[in-house]
Every structure is written in C-alpha cells, then in structure tokens.
C-alpha cells in the first residue's frame, strides 16, 4: 500500500508530462501554424516511426553506439578521476588539459574525426566517449578528493596496500558522487549521440529528425522529438533507481535531478 503522499509523488512527473503535452496542444491550436502540429498529431505519428523497420534499426544502432561509448568512457574515467582525486601531482598533471578540453563541443569534433576515421560507428562512438568522459572524471575526482583521510589511515593500519585502498575504500566512499557524474554522463551521451547524427546526417535518430524536417514531414519531426525526449527521461529515471539502490547507505540525496544537459 502506498500512502497518498507517495502516490502523488509518483504521479507528479506523469501529470507534468500530460500537462506539458496539453500546453503544446493548446499552443499549436492557437498558433494555427502549418509547421507546428498538435500534440495529438505528433503522438499519432509515433507508431509509424517505430513500426518502420529501417527507422527502428537506425534508432537501435544509435542506442548501441551510445551504450558502447558510455560504457568505455565510464571504465576509463572512473579510475582516472579517482587517481586524480587521491594524488595531487596526477591532478595537477591532468587538470589544465581537461580545462582546455572542457568548453570544446565534443560533437563539433565530428567533422575532423570523420576526416580521419570516416563516417562509421567508430567516429560516432568516439565522440560519445569524449562527451561522457569529462563529467565522469570530474565527479570521480571530486568524490575521491572528499574521502576522509582518516578512513584511509585506518585502511593503511589494517594493512591495505595503496591499490587496495583505492578499490576498497576510495571507490565505495566516492560512489555517490561518481554515480552523479555517470548520470550526467548518460544524459550527455544521448545528447552527443543526437547531435553527432545531426551533424553527420548519415544515419541514426538525429538523421531521421532532420530528414523529416527537410521533407516537411512535421508530424514525424515532433514525434521523433517525443521519442528522443522519452528516451532521455526513461534512461535518467532508470539510472536514478539503480543509483538509489547502490548507495542506499549514503545520506538521502537531494531528490531533484541534478544532471544537466
């Protein structure tokens, strides 16, 4: 049994979705713009896209690239971030480089990397990898930096080697922060994926969007926006549940999503 309060809390995001769609519906009816279909028209176009085999394969291929790019980025970035957090010189070594890379739009590297590696999966996955890495490194770094020195001393007193301390003390202690970074990274992976496909215009979900735009299929454009938006919301919610489970022991966290795009 759920208490009414918990039920409202669950239902609120759903209500918000419905509310946003309703605002859209009213706005499009009021504007009477040919290129601005109503929410109902856009929702109706969704089955057509997902029913079309080619579109579906395109979307799935996008998701696969995203998963690989995200996975590899997480595997590389967490150890690097933790090492930076625990060693002043490693941090001093990498920080300026990361600072220079930070404001570079990763998806903007597409044309250059395409020049070297072609337009294939490798290029797009590499770009996603680059997009995800920075927030994960940053949050792992912050998490590891905040680990209490005395916890590590206790570990050392118990005979743990530096490497063991990193894995058995720093990693779990920094986990809440690391997962915050991963959550941001996940949303960024989706964004980078869409953007890179919009720029390369060759295949994938982003390409469907702009093809439909070029051909004036406005229902499809807006239906695709709903699909991509739903993916973002769904992935974020899924990750949030996993995160909450993994770090049950930590202080109850701030419950608005802190991830940004």
């Amino acid at each position: 049994m759920m208490t009414p309060a918990a039920l409202t809390k669950r239902a609120a995001p759903v209500l918000a979705c419905i509310g946003l769609l309703a605002v859209w519906q009213v706005a499009s009816l009021a504007l009477k713009n040919d290129s601005f279909p109503t929410a109902i028209e856009a929702v109706r176009a969704i089955p057509d896209i997902l029913g079309d085999k080619e579109s579906l394969l395109n979307i799935l291929a996008s998701l696969r690239r995203m998963a690989i790019g995200f996975g590899v980025a997480v595997l590389v970035s967490i150890p690097l971030g933790l090492l930076m957090g625990r060693s002043r010189s490693i941090a001093a070594f990498f920080n300026p480089l990361l600072m220079v890379i930070y404001p570079v739009p990763k998806a903007a590297l597409m044309p250059i990397i395409m020049l070297w590696l072609g337009v294939g999966d490798v290029t797009k996955t590499l770009v996603i990898f680059l997009g995800v890495s920075l927030p994960v490194i940053y949050h792992s770094f912050e998490g590891a930096k905040a680990v209490e020195e005395k916890m590590l001393w206790s570990g050392a007193a118990m005979g743990l080697s530096p490497a063991q301390r990193l894995v058995r003390i720093v990693l779990p202690a920094a986990l809440p922060e690391i997962l915050t970074g991963c959550r941001t990274g996940l949303v960024l992976a989706l964004i980078t994926m869409i953007t890179s496909e919009m720029i390369a215009r060759q295949s994938g979900a982003g390409n469907i969007l702009f093809n439909a735009l070029d051909m004036g299929q406005y229902d499809t454009v807006f239906a695709m926006i709903i699909i991509v938006g739903a993916m973002g919301i769904f992935l974020d919610a899924l990750f949030e549940r996993a995160r909450a489970r993994l770090v049950r022991w930590s202080e109850p966290q701030f419950d608005m999503p802190l991830s940004f795009s």
Partner: peptide
C-alpha cells in the same frame, strides 16, 4: 509542487532534440 515535476521531466530531456521544432517555430 508545480515546478518540481516539470523540472524532473524536462531536465534529462536532450534539449538539442528540440532544435528542429525551434527552427520550425
């Protein structure tokens, strides 16, 4: 109570996907 659920929905939404819609509008 109004802002929180809307933010929950809109924050993880990849805004760049809205770009085609913004171009149209």
């Amino acid at each position: 109570a109004v802002v929180r659920p809307i933010v929950r929905v809109l924050a993880p939404l990849p805004k760049v996907a809205l770009y085609p819609a913004l171009l149209l509008l």
